[in-house]
Design a protein around this nucleic acid. Sequence first.
DNA 1: CTTTGGATCGTCT
DNA 2: GACGATCCAAAGG
Length: 193
Amino acid sequence: MGRLPREFFAADSRELAPHLLNKLLVRGERVGRIVEVEAYAGAADPASHAFRGMTARNATMFGPPGHLYVYFTYGMHFCANVVCGPEGEASAVLLRGLTPVAGVEAMRAARGSAARRDRDLCSGPGKLCQALGLDRSFDGADLVTGDRGVEVVDDGVPPPAVPGVSGRIGLSVATEVPWRFYVPGAVGISRAR
DNA sequence: CTTTGGATCGTCT
DNA sequence: GACGATCCAAAGG
């Protein structure tokens, strides 16, 4: 299980996003392989929470790379992003889908009756946060050092040579830019509405 | 399998 | 006061 250097996360979000595919997100005994992500390009991206500058909610995105930005939305869901780019630039990669690798029973317990099949455990940004128990208390967690028990590691599985690419999901603006990346055919990919 | 409506509240205008 | 980087149950094919 290789630790990833801070510089790995310092890249532009659109460059980092496909490189995050097939890395592992580890939260205690619960482990998932990252199979779907979306890039958000900070101040230059009208769909980004950082488009209108820094607020109390999005401050973590303006900090150093390699940290977790967790936000609450729709009155009931959390979503998790990997902060990237240089400090001061608020770019990030949204984690949208994981393939469950370990701790599946704990994930199932956290998700409840809705997740009957393994493919339903982490196949969406809100679902994977619920499965791994990620909430606002994890906002700012360091994914390099694992200071709060959450980290991203490399187990030697490379990203796909040719990732799937599409427009981003769930937005009302900038829906056409091809900044969603996924592992073709993987378990745990979300579905568009 | 697909489509549709409702839940629910922190955040920013 | 409006609106989400969403999810689920129910209903129809």
